[in-house]
Each structure stands twice: as structure tokens, then as C-alpha cells.
Amino acid sequence: MVADEELPLLDALRVLAMLQQEFLRLALFVASQGPTTYEGETLTCSLPDAKRRISTLLAMGEGQSVESLLQIAKHRGISVRDAYPIARSTVESFVNASYLLAESNAVADRAFRYIEFAAWRQHNRKFGSGGYSIEGRSDPNPASTLASKFPEFTGKGNGSWTNLDMPSRIRRVGELAGRKAGSRLLAAYGLIYSLSSEVIHGSPFGASFFYSAHLKGERTTEAFVAGTVRQLEEILITVLHAGCGYLAAFFEKQQMQVGLEAEDKLFKRLMALSTKPASASPHGNDGKR
């Protein structure tokens, strides 16, 4: 394998993300399939069933999202914009997966109940504004069903699976699954959350940022393409922080020492790459416009 320092930054980050994916697969295998051996240590999932199932459900999907980002990282130019919503989803889901495996069984149970409630609500809701609003119903008496079948979701502020905002969930991960997990997730949140909101929601600033970030005063197609390479580097650094946070929470919560050591080595490589100069070439080794 080519050493990180011999690769352009974007390529080195892609290699590290692929390695992280292997550790994620290891965690998912232990959680969903049963015990396995790694580096001479037998890894057995000790999470209660509800925590195990709901956190694995989220983490498995985000593993696929990372694969999508790795494909987008081969592109250059305007198509890079699509990396932002995927990265935002990846970070949020890794935070939620970490929070659910770290918190009490009651939180995981509520999350499962929310799945049924949200499916029902999807077909019994009103959306729009004023004369431009639509109400759809599959239930002839939604108020009665809500009170009788989903009482825990009634009342102001109780319509979600958790009342905690994203920073508070990260804080709870840090308190319950260790400072490493919490700090890695917090870094990912800080790097992507507000910026991705601007891009995803199509704000004027979000559009301006995407087209002009890292131009350094140049207004050429080549400068724009080079800027999207830098954005991809930042996005992969963000997602790698989130993945490390989940792995740290998973291994710490279950005292899997060999997994903790592997995650720590991975994170140290990430920090070393984070100080590496940006890729000199706008196209990298295998990039495309």
C-alpha cells in the first residue's frame, strides 16, 4: 500500500475512509451476525436487543452513504454539490446511532415506537400554508388514534423520537460512551452541520459558497474545479470524524479493547492527514470533471 504521505490529500483520505469501512463492517458483523475474532480477541456484542437493532439499522445505512461519497470523490466540478446532503445525513446518522447505543433501553424502545408512529403520521398530516395547504388522511379519526395508540407522542414537543437536539445527543454520547466518541462526533458536527444546511436548503449563501469557496481571487473554470477538490477533502475529513466517533462509542461501550486501539490508530492517521497540504492537482490521480 502506498504511504499516506506519498498520495495527494484527497486520495489519502479515500484510502483511510476505505480502511474505516472495514472496521465499520467488523462492528456491524458483531452486532448483527454474532461473535468473531479480531487480532486474537473474541468480540461479542453485549448491547441489549433494542439498542443493538436500532443503532445497527442506522450505522449500516451510513456505511452505504460513505460508499456513495467515495464515488462522488472521484468527480470534479458541479456534481460535488451532491456530496453535502449525503455527508450531512452520514454525520447525523452516526451521531444518532452512537446516541442510541449509549443511552438507556427506554430511549431505544421509544425510537422503535417512533418508527410506527411516524409511518402512521405520514398518511395523516397537513402541510402547506394558507390557501396552499393539503390535508391527507388514511385514518377516519386521527385524534382518537393518536391519543389511544401513540399517547407518548402527544403534546407540544413530544412528536419526535427524542427531545434532545444534536449537540445534546453528542454530549450524552461523551458522558456515556467516553470523551473520544463525543469529541469526534462534535468535530464532525461543527465541520458540516450549519454549512450543509445552507447548501442543502438552497440559500443564497449556500450557492455562493459552493461556487466560490477556495477560489483565492481567481474566477476561472480551473479554479472552481480545484475548489471542489478542496471541498471534497473537507467533506471526507468530516465524515471520517463521524465514523471514528461511532466506532469509539461502539467499542468503548462494550469494552472491546482491540477495537478501541484500532480506532485510535485510525484517528491518529486522520489527524495527521488533516494537517497535510491540500491536493495540488484539481483532478487528483483519478479525478474527472
Rank of each mutant, 00 (worst) to 15 (best):
R113Y: 02
Y114E: 03
I115C: 02
I115Q: 14
I115T: 10
E116S: 09
F117E: 01
F117C: 03
F117P: 01
F117K: 02
A118C: 08
A118N: 12
A119G: 11
W120D: 05
R121V: 06
R121H: 14
R121L: 13
Q122M: 12
H123M: 07
H123N: 13
N124W: 03
N124I: 06
N124L: 02
R125W: 01
G128N: 11
G128W: 11
S129P: 00
Y132P: 00
Y132V: 09
Y132I: 02
S133W: 08
S133H: 10
E135G: 09
E135T: 14
G136D: 00
G136P: 00
R137D: 14
R137M: 15
S138Q: 07
S138V: 14
P140S: 08
P140M: 06
A143G: 13
S144G: 13
S144A: 15
A147R: 15
F150Q: 06
P151Y: 15
P151A: 11
E152Q: 13
F153E: 05
T154M: 14
G155F: 02
G157K: 10
N158R: 09
G159K: 01
G159T: 04
S160Y: 07
S160L: 12
T162I: 10
T162Y: 08
T162A: 09
L164V: 07
L164A: 09
L164F: 09
M166E: 02
R169F: 01
R169L: 05
R169P: 02
R169C: 04
I170L: 08
I170M: 08
R171Q: 09
R172V: 05
V173R: 01
V173H: 00
E175I: 03
E175Y: 05
L176F: 12
A177Q: 05
G178K: 02
G178D: 09
G178I: 07
